[in-house]
């Protein structure tokens, strides 16, 4: 599944980052395969998404989140 489908309060592990669509800056902020991600809060219409990626708190838009693949812990 993609990061855009994550629910508020849910945790997951990033499995793959579609490198052509994702700018380097996001990777440098810790958005790398293997790192954990938690959806902290969403704005109305669940966009943008307020994430905790490996201890770094940041917000990205849904249109970026669909290019990040994740795996939830319980799956």
């Amino acid at each position: 599944m993609t990061l855009a489908e994550l629910k508020r309060g849910q945790n997951a592990i990033i499995t793959d980052v579609s490198s052509k669509k994702i700018p380097l800056k996001l990777l440098e902020m810790g958005c790398l395969p293997g790192n954990s991600v938690e959806l902290v809060q969403v704005a109305p219409f669940s966009d943008p998404m307020y994430l905790n990626i490996n201890g770094t708190h940041l917000a990205i838009r849904k249109e970026t989140a669909i290019h990040i693949l994740i795996e939830t812990n319980d799956a």
């Binding site: 700018p23 800056k25 996001l26 902020m29 943008p48 307020y50 770094t56 708190h57 940041l58 917000a59 990205i60 838009r61 249109e63 970026t64």
Partner: peptide, 11 residues
């Protein structure tokens, strides 16, 4: 233009 948005949420 490339659409992209990322903002750090500091403490």
């Amino acid at each position: 233009s490339r659409k992209f948005f990322v903002v750090e949420m500091p403490n």
